[in-house]
Design a protein around this nucleic acid. Sequence first.
DNA 1: GGTGAAATAAGGGTTAC
DNA 2: GTAACCCTTATTTCACC
Lengths: 155, 155
Amino acid sequence: MKGMQLDDTNLKILRILQDDASLTNQELSNRIGLSPATTLERVKKLEQAGIIRKYTALVDEKKLNKHIKAYIFITMKEHSNQSLIEFNKRIKDLPEVLECCRLAGEKDYILKVIVDNIEDFELFTRTRLTTIPGIDKTSSSIVLASIVDRTDIPL
Amino acid sequence: MKGMQLDDTNLKILRILQDDASLTNQELSNRIGLSPATTLERVKKLEQAGIIRKYTALVDEKKLNKHIKAYIFITMKEHSNQSLIEFNKRIKDLPEVLECCRLAGEKDYILKVIVDNIEDFELFTRTRLTTIPGIDKTSSSIVLASIVDRTDIPL
DNA sequence: GGTGAAATAAGGGTTAC
DNA sequence: GTAACCCTTATTTCACC
């Protein structure tokens, strides 16, 4: 399913479900002005096509005692394919790492990390992150305040 | 509801729902080993306490033609309270900005931005971002590859 | 529309402090 | 006693064909 139909109705469905996935199919069908059956069929197709990847509950980090969020930049010693593949593999095993992207430019990677407190952050970088082979330098920016934090892609 | 009980059962519920919020309450109750009614009651309390913030559908960015993701650093001309409040207000109006954090260190803000293509990126920075008053310098890092992209807080 | 399944509401039992 | 936790049953609502 590559070239799936992304008409206005499907975009509307995606906008609504990104905003609130707890809606019943009936309520969703009301909002887009189609019958429940037709609406459900469209949603199922969007799921099958992988356009809807996942349904998830978003939680309040602070209320779960995750008080430190930080971005960490990483530069590697060498940039061989092997070295980067090994790094990618190792970084996926760290649940504290919510995002990890390979970048264009001087810095090789950016990580978004979340931990309980500043002691845990120090412990994380020292015992879990920088023990990954191939890392040359890291540089951390602690988040002081989160102004925007959304998961909904603009459509 | 501040000091809400976060016992093992509630943590298990949160882990499961972060991983898959499309589960029925019955299936959820099976997995945690409680009755459906009791399970539902716990979930409702987690919602009321704001620990579960939102249910959302995560979509595949690439399949929706969002091909460019980038991190942008911003340094401000001045750091008066007024100046930052104005910036915060303006940045929330830009749907391309998925994350915006105030940072400790040299750089004042980091933004995560998603757009269709590189032309749109140039247009965004030139006509929508740098037109916000108070910005001194910006510096962009384009994402080459996404290694990790998760929303589930480790619990 | 109809059917079966699931969410929700109501009521009661058990244990710990 | 009472508060927290959990269960069962009954009713309503919804997904799905």
